[in-house]
Amino acid sequence: MTVFVPITYKGGVYRHDIIIDLIDDLGGYIVQKHMIAQEVVLQSLVPKDDIELIRKISRPLAGVVIEAPLVGTEIAVVSPSLEIHHLPHTSCDVAEYLRSAGAKTNMIGLARGFGKRIANLSIEERDIINEHDCAVFMLGNFETCIEYKMPALRRGINVPIILTGRPSTEALQRIIDPPVDGYVGGIGRIAHRMRQQEGEIDHLDTLVEEVSAVLSRKREEVAKDPLSINPARLMAVLDDAMDITKRSTHPTPVVVQIRALRVKLPYDTYADPIAAIEIENGVKIGDITQILPSRMRDYILIRIRPFSETKIMV
């Protein structure tokens, strides 16, 4: 089986279609495509052996190929609120940094996540967070507060949690019980943009490492009972059949997750037509997935069922 590696391609708009065709011909998938002024950024999954070939072909076009560990994942960046206390610094810095590593991040500001005793998580927030691959909880500067409010904020969340806060990683590990999946100390509430390498950007790098470690564990878990279809392939099939990317005005109309897809189309109208799309040899999308209404607006969440359930692999 081909091993896919997540990469980010950055280059000029000029003749970038060559790279798109190349990735397509190699059997890779473009998960996200951004056109920013004169620059094109492609987040893609490509066969491991062909990275050098893409590098070689993109060289004359002045494009660069970077391995981006988080491509094909959707991460919730949860902050206690979207008030001036947490935004734009820290929350935006973290979300932006994770995005530069290839992830699709959604910033979630809790309605009542602030304070110590009064911190709370609503059912809607819990469900939305549970639709992601993992959640990065961005808490504050005091050990006492983090220890006290964390149980309320994590209640009912069943995706891996990575906790960040100002106290050291060891201190966070000590105070959180039962343990969460990842800890990154040194990122707390600040009132300026993270610019210094030491003590600021270094911590963000650690966060990316921690998140990718947590997600690789999740990917290994999934590999034990493989999915009936690769999510990136399902995205390609869906997009071919319905032309979603071309017709939608969303920056990322279809979001690829580790074991699911989020499709930004109204559930009521499109759930049945999507289920009826044929992938190959008579296997339809509805046969190997659960098509669910997402808690995020009226979007569709397609959960891919594992091979053990469907006995189908496409």
Binding site: N141, E143, T144, P167, G188, I190
Partner: peptide
């Protein structure tokens, strides 16, 4: 908490 004090100063 010395860590908190330092960051709140900033």
């Amino acid at each position: 908490e010395p860590v908190g004090a330092e960051i709140y100063k900033k």
